[in-house]
Amino acid sequence: MYELVEYLLRGALLGITYGLLAFPVSLLFSTTGSVDVALGAYAVLAVAVAYTIGGPIGILAAILAAVFASFIVGIISLRLNRPGAVDHITAVLGTFGLAMFLESFILSVFGTNPMIRQPFETFWNLGGIRISPQTGINAAVCLVILTALFVVLRQTPFGRSMRASAANPVGASLNGIPVRQIWFATYLLGGLLAGIAGVLILYTTGADYSSAFTLTIWGFGSAIIFGMHSPLRGFAGGLMIGMVQALCAGYLPGAWATAIPFIVIFVVLSAGRMNQIAATGGRV
């Protein structure tokens, strides 16, 4: 029982970063109807940059690098989704290409070594469970960001435009909302969040060049588990995925521990709400 609590707690702390990755997935899906497969690659790029440069400058550079990468993806996706050729699958393929590019770029520039930093020597003792203070920082950062996003989405004109373009792109553009610019901003926001998540990952679990697609899958899984339409649900989904991972790692032998979370996501995917878009024949 005690063990179980420990695994759940560790999982939840691990899942915080997935929650950060889940937010851009659900936001992008509800505003543009598309998925950015390169999301995990931004995060790994941020990990690599922050690891190489180090210090606060490194963190800043890492986030900027991720935003820059998402800037490129945004431009590409807008070009791909131009009128007469709105094909989400093509846009997904484009982000897939960029994810491959980034992965190969990270591999050739930063090498194959796993990148991780452990800034704290001492650990907190939570009822016998040793926890790095870093997880506390992670939780605090995530709470701040989520609150900020919530306020932006609910209280500012920008957030209102964003929600309007998500709910009804045609209606929004008829009301003078620059829908395409909003889409672009959504991509940038995704890069920003992925960059922050990347920095947090560097200081907790670490990553290597090949983590990009796995991170995308975790973010995506977190986003779909409770439904795509709210950032808070995505955050809860992230905690959930983290717990599933921690439980599998605790109770199952090696390979299964890695495979089961994927299979859980697959089950969620096949049972989930995303399929209900189907009712409109794929037209979101």
């Binding site: 598309s34 998925v35 497969v37 989400h88 699958i89 997904v92 697609f213 796995t214 995308t216 899958i217 995506f220 390979a255 890695t258 495979a259 994927f262 299979i263 996501i265 697959f266 995917l269 096949s270 989930g272 995303m274 399929n275 878009i277 189907a278 009712a279 024949g281 794929g282």
Partner: peptide
């Protein structure tokens, strides 16, 4: 997966690829 929507299916093939490499 594809009850009509191809987008989740492409994600699912990505999952398959990861699981298979692991297996």
């Amino acid at each position: 997966i594809t009850r009509l929507s191809p987008l989740p299916l492409s994600i699912a093939t990505l999952l398959l690829s990861l699981v298979l490499e692991l297996a």
